[in-house]
Design a protein around this nucleic acid. Sequence first.
DNA 1: GTCGATTGTCACCAAACTGTCACCAAACGT
DNA 2: ACGTTTGGTGACAGTTTGGTGACAATCGAC
Lengths: 225, 225
Amino acid sequence: MASIISFALETEGFIVTRVTNGFDAWESIQLIQFDVIVLDVMMPRIDGLEVCRRTRALPQRASTSILVVTAKAGPDEIITGLEAGADDYLAKPFHPRELALRASALARRSHRKLADEVPEIVVTSSSVSGALRVDLDRFEAFLDDRPLRVTTNEIRMLACLIQNAGKAISWEQLLKDAWGVESWEGGREMVKAAVYRLRQKLDDDPHEPRFIVAVRGVGYKLLPL
Amino acid sequence: MASIISFALETEGFIVTRVTNGFDAWESIQLIQFDVIVLDVMMPRIDGLEVCRRTRALPQRASTSILVVTAKAGPDEIITGLEAGADDYLAKPFHPRELALRASALARRSHRKLADEVPEIVVTSSSVSGALRVDLDRFEAFLDDRPLRVTTNEIRMLACLIQNAGKAISWEQLLKDAWGVESWEGGREMVKAAVYRLRQKLDDDPHEPRFIVAVRGVGYKLLPL
DNA sequence: GTCGATTGTCACCAAACTGTCACCAAACGT
DNA sequence: ACGTTTGGTGACAGTTTGGTGACAATCGAC
């Protein structure tokens, strides 16, 4: 069962950490900020719902998405599951792809939310906007799944743009997010040059941009999707 | 069915807006920023999944939670539903309380996200007045869903007018809101020219205004609706 | 220390934007 | 009816801004 779920999730693009019992799950959850947690109710050592409740009780995990899977499909069980703090409750038998899609829907929310959190947390996540993807864990960026030779500052700028895809980001904000400085004398020039270099690597024409568009007098924004 | 769902949601603390067909749903969704949207797949006029897809396509509604309800419970239907962008998919018959709890789980996420935002952002995000819409996050303005090529100052002026739709705004106020200046020597002329340019882009005839009307001796106002 | 990659700065250009002005017409006060 | 005030229109030039490319200082790995 775990193999099937893992495979379906990996197909959907997830990087999966798998454990075989409730205790290990609880240990991992305490250590790692997962995007989504999939729990079976019937697990050795610690019950899935109990893990769910404990996770919800952790302030720093309150916002992690939890999906509970079970063989018990009665209305009461489902209600118990949701009351335990699960974001979604899926009864066996289910189609693996359905689980993967539900997990994606949850992850979509987590990511969006993560963007609002402090940089430290964001650093440990991967963000996607259309054909663009950055992984700040590995400091890698991809365009159409082809790796991009981007530098540290560029990738941080990209991440900032992707996490606010569609929204205009002031160059002050970019300066703060990518360089970690509040202000700078030649800050505007800096950002200008950095965007220029990044655009070259993205093969992005400023006059007909596919990705980064300038917002005159403000800064830049990434085209949504 | 709608009554039952409404009752369950209201019991859970929701304030419910109910419509009876897909078209009304789509109209409401465009106008109102709901926390959660519950859609039946089988709806008159516009199919629930189509409403779901359209909602997802709206940038300013991308983060609204959508829960789809249906009688079709096959794996394929569920997958189609989730692929349409639903956050949750519930098959009839279901326990009303389950739906309410699932809706709560989704709303919890929406709220958390909203709560993280600063008040200013919430105020300055998307504003609508009839066919006019400005989104100060993205620095975009729309007339009948067609994008307008407006400049930064113009969009700020528009936003100020829209947020006070129907009320007269003094040119001093416009100067302060759009230019960020308390006073100016040729301020009156400035605003005059800016309004003139904006009106051209809105295709608005001052003698027969659809949008911006002059309030003699004071400033301007946007026609309501 | 050397070499290459990265990065901060600068100068220049083109395009966009904006402030100002002059002029006209309509509205207003007397 | 007349002069005055206010708003609308259009043009113009100065300014600002973003894009581009080059260069030197800096950083980092060997």
